[in-house]
């Protein structure tokens, strides 16, 4: 099974994690335009290649982590200084 390296728990099976998607910024609802808000709600990046994305270790330490992954192959690219 594909594994993700949790900085707190070490390498764990991917089914312990929840996928949140590419890092994106939530606009301030009181200051944003309608178009910007709809863009935030519906338009998703769908990167074909290497992407930095947020995952949630739901069945583990329940912390959020950033994973760099190639969506073409599901290869996880280790962060700098990471041993694997």
């Amino acid at each position: 099974m594909m594994q993700l390296s949790c900085p707190w728990c070490g390498p764990r099976n991917v089914n312990e994690f929840h996928h949140d998607g590419p890092l994106h910024h939530r606009p301030d609802p009181t200051a944003t335009t309608v178009e910007e808000w709809r863009h935030y709600l519906y338009i998703r990046e769908n990167p074909h290649g290497v992407v930095e994305e947020r995952w949630y270790h739901a069945a583990g330490c329940r912390k959020f982590l950033v994973v760099t992954r190639d969506t073409r192959t599901n290869t996880v690219i280790p962060a700098e200084g990471e041993s694997r």
């Binding site: 099974m1 594909m2 099976n13 991917v14 089914n15 929840h18 996928h19 998607g21 769908n46 074909h48 969506t71 073409r72 192959t73 599901n74």
Partner: peptide, 13 residues
């Protein structure tokens, strides 16, 4: 599958 991907490889899981 519960995450986005363009990989069409099957999994044992």
């Amino acid at each position: 599958d519960p995450f986005t991907s363009f990989s069409t490889r099957g999994s044992l899981a």
